[in-house]
Design a protein around this nucleic acid. Structure first.
Lengths: 177, 177
DNA sequence: TATTGTTATACTCTATAACTATA
DNA sequence: TATAGTTATAGAGTATAACAATA
Protein backbone atom coordinates (compact mmCIF):
# COMPACT_ATOMS: atom_id res chain seq x y z
CA UNK A 1 0.00 0.00 0.00
CA UNK A 2 1.48 3.31 -1.04
CA UNK A 3 1.67 6.36 1.14
CA UNK A 4 -0.77 8.10 -1.19
CA UNK A 5 -3.28 5.28 -0.82
CA UNK A 6 -2.94 5.54 2.95
CA UNK A 7 -3.72 9.24 2.81
CA UNK A 8 -6.83 8.69 0.73
CA UNK A 9 -7.92 5.96 3.09
CA UNK A 10 -7.33 8.20 6.08
CA UNK A 11 -9.40 10.98 4.54
CA UNK A 12 -12.17 8.45 4.02
CA UNK A 13 -12.00 7.16 7.58
CA UNK A 14 -12.06 10.68 8.97
CA UNK A 15 -15.27 11.26 7.11
CA UNK A 16 -16.70 7.93 8.19
CA UNK A 17 -16.12 8.34 11.92
CA UNK A 18 -19.02 10.73 11.75
CA UNK A 19 -21.28 7.81 12.47
CA UNK A 20 -19.46 7.23 15.75
CA UNK A 21 -19.66 10.88 16.71
CA UNK A 22 -23.37 10.95 15.93
CA UNK A 23 -24.03 7.93 18.08
CA UNK A 24 -22.20 9.57 20.96
CA UNK A 25 -24.20 12.74 20.37
CA UNK A 26 -27.47 10.82 20.57
CA UNK A 27 -26.46 9.38 23.90
CA UNK A 28 -25.96 12.82 25.46
CA UNK A 29 -28.53 14.24 27.90
CA UNK A 30 -31.19 16.29 26.18
CA UNK A 31 -30.03 19.59 27.68
CA UNK A 32 -26.35 19.00 27.10
CA UNK A 33 -25.38 18.83 23.42
CA UNK A 34 -21.85 18.15 22.24
CA UNK A 35 -20.66 21.73 22.43
CA UNK A 36 -21.67 21.97 26.08
CA UNK A 37 -20.00 18.68 26.87
CA UNK A 38 -16.77 19.95 25.32
CA UNK A 39 -16.80 23.06 27.49
CA UNK A 40 -17.37 21.09 30.69
CA UNK A 41 -14.71 18.52 29.85
CA UNK A 42 -12.02 21.10 29.12
CA UNK A 43 -12.77 23.17 32.21
CA UNK A 44 -12.48 20.01 34.26
CA UNK A 45 -9.16 19.05 32.73
CA UNK A 46 -7.42 22.39 32.57
CA UNK A 47 -9.04 24.28 35.42
CA UNK A 48 -10.55 27.74 35.23
CA UNK A 49 -9.61 29.85 32.24
CA UNK A 50 -10.68 32.73 30.03
CA UNK A 51 -12.91 32.56 26.95
CA UNK A 52 -10.01 33.00 24.59
CA UNK A 53 -8.07 30.15 26.12
CA UNK A 54 -11.11 27.89 25.96
CA UNK A 55 -11.65 28.78 22.31
CA UNK A 56 -8.07 27.79 21.61
CA UNK A 57 -8.50 24.44 23.35
CA UNK A 58 -11.79 23.78 21.55
CA UNK A 59 -10.11 24.87 18.31
CA UNK A 60 -13.15 26.86 17.23
CA UNK A 61 -13.88 30.55 16.79
CA UNK A 62 -14.52 32.66 19.90
CA UNK A 63 -18.04 33.38 18.66
CA UNK A 64 -18.81 29.67 18.78
CA UNK A 65 -17.23 29.35 22.17
CA UNK A 66 -19.31 32.26 23.41
CA UNK A 67 -22.51 30.48 22.48
CA UNK A 68 -21.53 27.17 24.02
CA UNK A 69 -20.42 28.91 27.19
CA UNK A 70 -23.66 30.87 27.40
CA UNK A 71 -25.58 27.59 27.17
CA UNK A 72 -23.79 25.94 30.08
CA UNK A 73 -23.77 29.13 32.15
CA UNK A 74 -27.56 29.48 31.79
CA UNK A 75 -27.91 26.03 33.30
CA UNK A 76 -25.63 26.83 36.21
CA UNK A 77 -22.91 24.40 35.24
CA UNK A 78 -20.22 27.08 35.13
CA UNK A 79 -19.65 30.52 36.63
CA UNK A 80 -18.39 33.54 34.69
CA UNK A 81 -16.32 35.55 37.13
CA UNK A 82 -14.84 38.98 36.49
CA UNK A 83 -11.12 38.98 35.79
CA UNK A 84 -9.49 41.41 38.26
CA UNK A 85 -6.59 41.88 35.84
CA UNK A 86 -8.71 42.80 32.80
CA UNK A 87 -12.27 44.03 32.94
CA UNK A 88 -12.96 42.87 29.37
CA UNK A 89 -12.22 39.31 30.30
CA UNK A 90 -14.20 36.69 32.17
CA UNK A 91 -12.91 33.73 34.10
CA UNK A 92 -14.83 30.51 33.54
CA UNK A 93 -15.10 28.03 36.38
CA UNK A 94 -16.93 24.74 36.78
CA UNK A 95 -19.61 24.68 39.50
CA UNK A 96 -20.58 21.65 41.62
CA UNK A 97 -23.63 21.24 39.39
CA UNK A 98 -21.27 21.22 36.43
CA UNK A 99 -19.23 18.45 37.99
CA UNK A 100 -22.40 16.46 38.54
CA UNK A 101 -23.34 16.85 34.89
CA UNK A 102 -19.85 15.83 33.88
CA UNK A 103 -20.10 12.69 35.97
CA UNK A 104 -23.30 11.84 34.14
CA UNK A 105 -21.58 12.39 30.79
CA UNK A 106 -18.79 10.04 31.82
CA UNK A 107 -21.24 7.38 32.91
CA UNK A 108 -23.09 7.55 29.63
CA UNK A 109 -20.09 7.62 27.32
CA UNK A 110 -18.35 4.84 29.21
CA UNK A 111 -21.43 2.67 29.01
CA UNK A 112 -21.69 3.16 25.26
CA UNK A 113 -18.02 2.55 24.56
CA UNK A 114 -17.83 -0.44 26.88
CA UNK A 115 -20.67 -1.96 24.90
CA UNK A 116 -19.30 -1.22 21.46
CA UNK A 117 -15.63 -1.95 22.19
CA UNK A 118 -16.11 -4.97 24.43
CA UNK A 119 -14.08 -7.15 22.10
CA UNK A 120 -11.16 -4.71 21.87
CA UNK A 121 -7.99 -5.29 23.84
CA UNK A 122 -6.76 -2.64 26.25
CA UNK A 123 -3.72 -2.13 24.04
CA UNK A 124 -5.80 -1.44 20.98
CA UNK A 125 -7.96 1.13 22.74
CA UNK A 126 -4.85 2.80 24.11
CA UNK A 127 -3.17 2.82 20.73
CA UNK A 128 -6.20 4.36 19.03
CA UNK A 129 -6.36 7.08 21.68
CA UNK A 130 -2.65 7.75 21.27
CA UNK A 131 -2.75 7.98 17.49
CA UNK A 132 -5.86 10.17 17.42
CA UNK A 133 -4.23 12.51 19.91
CA UNK A 134 -1.13 12.64 17.76
CA UNK A 135 -3.22 13.31 14.67
CA UNK A 136 -4.85 16.27 16.33
CA UNK A 137 -1.50 17.58 17.51
CA UNK A 138 -0.09 17.34 14.01
CA UNK A 139 -2.87 19.60 12.80
CA UNK A 140 -2.79 21.91 15.80
CA UNK A 141 0.91 22.54 15.34
CA UNK A 142 0.23 24.12 11.98
CA UNK A 143 -2.46 26.50 13.19
CA UNK A 144 -0.50 28.80 15.46
CA UNK A 145 2.87 28.91 13.80
CA UNK A 146 5.88 27.10 15.26
CA UNK A 147 5.42 26.20 18.88
CA UNK A 148 7.80 25.29 21.67
CA UNK A 149 8.77 21.62 21.48
CA UNK A 150 6.41 19.26 23.18
CA UNK A 151 6.67 19.49 26.93
CA UNK A 152 8.57 16.46 28.19
CA UNK A 153 6.43 13.81 29.85
CA UNK A 154 5.60 14.78 33.40
CA UNK A 155 3.89 13.05 36.24
CA UNK A 156 0.18 13.68 35.72
CA UNK A 157 -0.20 16.56 38.14
CA UNK A 158 -3.25 18.81 38.49
CA UNK A 159 -2.99 21.49 35.84
CA UNK A 160 -2.62 24.94 37.39
CA UNK A 161 -5.26 27.54 36.56
CA UNK A 162 -4.57 28.95 33.14
CA UNK A 163 -5.56 32.49 32.41
CA UNK A 164 -4.48 32.20 28.84
CA UNK A 165 -2.29 35.27 28.66
CA UNK A 166 0.12 33.58 26.27
CA UNK A 167 -2.21 33.26 23.34
CA UNK A 168 -0.70 33.78 19.95
CA UNK A 169 -3.33 31.99 17.90
CA UNK A 170 -5.07 33.93 15.17
CA UNK A 171 -8.62 34.76 16.14
CA UNK A 172 -10.23 32.42 13.63
CA UNK A 173 -9.00 28.95 12.71
CA UNK A 174 -8.97 29.51 8.98
CA UNK A 175 -11.18 30.07 6.00
CA UNK A 176 -12.29 27.89 3.14
CA UNK A 177 -10.84 28.65 -0.27
CA UNK B 1 -4.31 3.77 32.94
CA UNK B 2 -7.64 2.09 33.55
CA UNK B 3 -10.02 0.96 30.88
CA UNK B 4 -12.50 3.58 32.07
CA UNK B 5 -9.92 6.34 31.71
CA UNK B 6 -9.19 5.13 28.21
CA UNK B 7 -12.86 5.37 27.32
CA UNK B 8 -13.14 8.91 28.59
CA UNK B 9 -10.01 9.84 26.69
CA UNK B 10 -11.38 8.24 23.55
CA UNK B 11 -14.62 10.16 23.85
CA UNK B 12 -12.58 13.33 24.19
CA UNK B 13 -10.42 12.54 21.17
CA UNK B 14 -13.46 11.75 19.07
CA UNK B 15 -14.80 15.18 19.86
CA UNK B 16 -11.43 16.80 19.22
CA UNK B 17 -10.82 15.33 15.77
CA UNK B 18 -13.44 17.82 14.67
CA UNK B 19 -10.63 20.27 14.07
CA UNK B 20 -9.07 17.86 11.59
CA UNK B 21 -12.35 17.29 9.81
CA UNK B 22 -12.96 21.04 9.58
CA UNK B 23 -9.56 21.65 8.08
CA UNK B 24 -10.23 18.99 5.47
CA UNK B 25 -13.63 20.56 4.80
CA UNK B 26 -12.03 23.96 4.22
CA UNK B 27 -9.68 22.47 1.68
CA UNK B 28 -12.54 21.13 -0.46
CA UNK B 29 -13.51 22.86 -3.72
CA UNK B 30 -16.16 25.50 -3.26
CA UNK B 31 -18.86 23.56 -5.12
CA UNK B 32 -18.09 20.22 -3.51
CA UNK B 33 -18.80 20.15 0.23
CA UNK B 34 -18.12 17.12 2.38
CA UNK B 35 -21.41 15.39 1.69
CA UNK B 36 -20.80 15.50 -2.05
CA UNK B 37 -17.26 14.23 -1.64
CA UNK B 38 -18.59 11.27 0.35
CA UNK B 39 -21.00 10.34 -2.40
CA UNK B 40 -18.34 10.49 -5.10
CA UNK B 41 -15.84 8.51 -3.05
CA UNK B 42 -18.25 5.68 -2.27
CA UNK B 43 -19.50 5.39 -5.83
CA UNK B 44 -15.91 5.14 -6.97
CA UNK B 45 -15.06 2.45 -4.46
CA UNK B 46 -18.13 0.28 -4.65
CA UNK B 47 -19.35 0.92 -8.17
CA UNK B 48 -22.88 1.88 -9.18
CA UNK B 49 -25.60 1.30 -6.62
CA UNK B 50 -29.05 2.38 -5.49
CA UNK B 51 -29.90 5.23 -3.11
CA UNK B 52 -30.69 2.90 -0.25
CA UNK B 53 -27.36 1.14 -0.53
CA UNK B 54 -25.52 4.45 -0.63
CA UNK B 55 -27.39 5.65 2.44
CA UNK B 56 -26.29 2.52 4.25
CA UNK B 57 -22.65 3.07 3.29
CA UNK B 58 -22.80 6.72 4.29
CA UNK B 59 -24.53 5.67 7.51
CA UNK B 60 -27.01 8.52 7.29
CA UNK B 61 -30.74 8.75 6.67
CA UNK B 62 -32.02 8.35 3.10
CA UNK B 63 -33.33 11.91 3.18
CA UNK B 64 -29.81 13.19 3.74
CA UNK B 65 -28.47 10.94 1.02
CA UNK B 66 -31.13 12.23 -1.35
CA UNK B 67 -29.97 15.80 -0.89
CA UNK B 68 -26.28 15.01 -1.32
CA UNK B 69 -27.05 12.97 -4.41
CA UNK B 70 -29.16 15.76 -5.89
CA UNK B 71 -26.27 18.16 -5.39
CA UNK B 72 -23.73 16.05 -7.29
CA UNK B 73 -26.26 15.07 -9.96
CA UNK B 74 -27.05 18.74 -10.68
CA UNK B 75 -23.37 19.27 -11.38
CA UNK B 76 -23.16 16.31 -13.73
CA UNK B 77 -20.83 14.29 -11.54
CA UNK B 78 -23.18 11.31 -11.37
CA UNK B 79 -26.06 9.91 -13.43
CA UNK B 80 -29.34 8.65 -11.98
CA UNK B 81 -30.44 5.81 -14.22
CA UNK B 82 -33.76 3.98 -14.04
CA UNK B 83 -33.59 0.57 -12.43
CA UNK B 84 -35.13 -1.94 -14.89
CA UNK B 85 -35.94 -4.24 -11.99
CA UNK B 86 -37.84 -1.69 -9.88
CA UNK B 87 -39.33 1.52 -11.20
CA UNK B 88 -39.21 3.16 -7.77
CA UNK B 89 -35.47 2.79 -7.63
CA UNK B 90 -32.63 4.70 -9.29
CA UNK B 91 -29.16 3.47 -10.10
CA UNK B 92 -26.40 5.95 -9.32
CA UNK B 93 -23.30 5.96 -11.48
CA UNK B 94 -20.20 8.15 -11.56
CA UNK B 95 -19.69 10.14 -14.78
CA UNK B 96 -16.31 11.05 -16.33
CA UNK B 97 -16.79 14.56 -14.91
CA UNK B 98 -17.32 12.95 -11.53
CA UNK B 99 -14.07 11.05 -11.85
CA UNK B 100 -12.30 14.30 -12.71
CA UNK B 101 -13.71 15.94 -9.61
CA UNK B 102 -12.68 12.96 -7.54
CA UNK B 103 -9.13 13.22 -8.85
CA UNK B 104 -9.10 16.83 -7.73
CA UNK B 105 -10.33 15.83 -4.29
CA UNK B 106 -7.56 13.28 -4.00
CA UNK B 107 -4.93 15.81 -5.04
CA UNK B 108 -6.13 18.27 -2.44
CA UNK B 109 -6.51 15.87 0.46
CA UNK B 110 -3.19 14.21 -0.26
CA UNK B 111 -1.43 17.56 -0.34
CA UNK B 112 -2.91 18.54 3.02
CA UNK B 113 -2.18 15.24 4.73
CA UNK B 114 1.32 14.99 3.26
CA UNK B 115 2.01 18.40 4.77
CA UNK B 116 0.55 17.72 8.18
CA UNK B 117 1.76 14.13 8.58
CA UNK B 118 5.19 14.53 7.02
CA UNK B 119 6.86 13.39 10.23
CA UNK B 120 4.71 10.29 10.62
CA UNK B 121 6.05 6.87 9.69
CA UNK B 122 4.22 4.78 7.14
CA UNK B 123 3.45 2.25 9.86
CA UNK B 124 1.82 4.84 12.08
CA UNK B 125 -0.40 6.15 9.31
CA UNK B 126 -1.40 2.61 8.42
CA UNK B 127 -2.12 1.73 12.02
CA UNK B 128 -4.30 4.79 12.52
CA UNK B 129 -6.26 3.96 9.38
CA UNK B 130 -6.69 0.39 10.53
CA UNK B 131 -7.88 1.29 14.02
CA UNK B 132 -10.29 3.97 12.80
CA UNK B 133 -11.75 1.50 10.35
CA UNK B 134 -12.16 -1.02 13.12
CA UNK B 135 -13.77 1.59 15.37
CA UNK B 136 -16.33 2.35 12.71
CA UNK B 137 -17.02 -1.34 12.17
CA UNK B 138 -17.53 -1.87 15.87
CA UNK B 139 -20.26 0.75 15.80
CA UNK B 140 -21.72 -0.35 12.48
CA UNK B 141 -22.13 -3.89 13.72
CA UNK B 142 -24.57 -2.67 16.33
CA UNK B 143 -26.74 -0.68 13.96
CA UNK B 144 -28.21 -3.43 11.83
CA UNK B 145 -28.49 -6.27 14.25
CA UNK B 146 -26.12 -9.23 14.18
CA UNK B 147 -24.30 -9.57 10.89
CA UNK B 148 -22.45 -12.37 9.19
CA UNK B 149 -18.93 -12.72 10.55
CA UNK B 150 -16.33 -10.52 8.92
CA UNK B 151 -15.54 -11.70 5.43
CA UNK B 152 -12.15 -13.41 5.47
CA UNK B 153 -9.31 -11.38 3.97
CA UNK B 154 -9.38 -11.53 0.20
CA UNK B 155 -7.14 -10.27 -2.56
CA UNK B 156 -8.20 -6.66 -3.16
CA UNK B 157 -10.36 -7.28 -6.21
CA UNK B 158 -12.60 -4.74 -7.91
CA UNK B 159 -15.90 -4.71 -6.10
CA UNK B 160 -18.73 -5.89 -8.36
CA UNK B 161 -21.68 -3.55 -8.91
CA UNK B 162 -23.91 -3.66 -5.89
CA UNK B 163 -27.62 -3.15 -6.33
CA UNK B 164 -28.22 -3.34 -2.63
CA UNK B 165 -30.98 -5.86 -2.65
CA UNK B 166 -29.81 -7.36 0.65
CA UNK B 167 -30.53 -4.39 2.85
CA UNK B 168 -31.82 -5.13 6.31
CA UNK B 169 -30.85 -1.89 8.00
CA UNK B 170 -33.60 0.14 9.65
CA UNK B 171 -34.38 3.25 7.65
CA UNK B 172 -33.01 5.71 10.15
CA UNK B 173 -29.82 5.26 12.17
CA UNK B 174 -31.33 6.04 15.54
CA UNK B 175 -32.80 8.74 17.71
CA UNK B 176 -31.55 10.78 20.61
CA UNK B 177 -33.02 10.06 24.00
C1' DT C 1 -5.53 51.48 18.01
C1' DA C 2 -5.80 46.86 19.47
C1' DT C 3 -8.04 43.27 22.09
C1' DT C 4 -11.96 40.61 24.58
C1' DG C 5 -16.12 38.96 24.21
C1' DT C 6 -21.07 39.13 22.26
C1' DT C 7 -24.54 39.05 18.73
C1' DA C 8 -26.59 38.66 13.97
C1' DT C 9 -26.46 36.11 9.85
C1' DA C 10 -25.54 32.33 6.81
C1' DC C 11 -24.02 27.65 5.54
C1' DT C 12 -23.40 22.52 6.20
C1' DC C 13 -24.87 18.32 8.00
C1' DT C 14 -28.28 15.72 10.11
C1' DA C 15 -33.00 13.67 11.61
C1' DT C 16 -38.12 13.51 11.59
C1' DA C 17 -42.30 13.51 9.29
C1' DA C 18 -45.31 13.82 5.40
C1' DC C 19 -45.73 12.75 0.78
C1' DT C 20 -45.50 10.22 -4.23
C1' DA C 21 -45.00 6.54 -6.95
C1' DT C 22 -44.45 1.80 -7.30
C1' DA C 23 -44.25 -3.10 -5.53
C1' DT D 1 -49.73 -2.69 2.90
C1' DA D 2 -45.04 -2.04 2.40
C1' DT D 3 -41.01 0.02 0.20
C1' DA D 4 -37.87 3.60 -2.54
C1' DG D 5 -37.08 7.98 -2.86
C1' DT D 6 -38.17 13.19 -2.33
C1' DT D 7 -39.19 17.36 0.08
C1' DA D 8 -40.26 20.48 4.10
C1' DT D 9 -38.93 21.66 8.51
C1' DA D 10 -36.09 21.92 12.58
C1' DG D 11 -31.86 21.53 15.38
C1' DA D 12 -26.77 21.48 16.16
C1' DG D 13 -22.21 23.17 14.94
C1' DT D 14 -19.48 26.36 12.70
C1' DA D 15 -17.50 30.82 10.42
C1' DT D 16 -17.81 35.75 9.15
C1' DA D 17 -18.70 40.34 10.15
C1' DA D 18 -20.21 44.10 12.93
C1' DC D 19 -20.38 45.72 17.46
C1' DA D 20 -19.52 47.43 22.64
C1' DA D 21 -16.45 47.75 26.31
C1' DT D 22 -11.90 48.00 27.83
C1' DA D 23 -6.72 48.11 27.35
Amino acid sequence: MTRQAHYEELARQLSAVGVVKREIARMLPYDCPGGSAGVLTLLDRHGEMRMSRLAELLAVDTSVTSRHVAHVAERGWIERLPDPADKRSRILRLTPAGRDKLAELHRRSTRLLADRLSHWSDDEVGELVRLMGRLRESFDDCRAGPRPPRTPPQAAAPVPPDTGTDITTPRTPAKRT
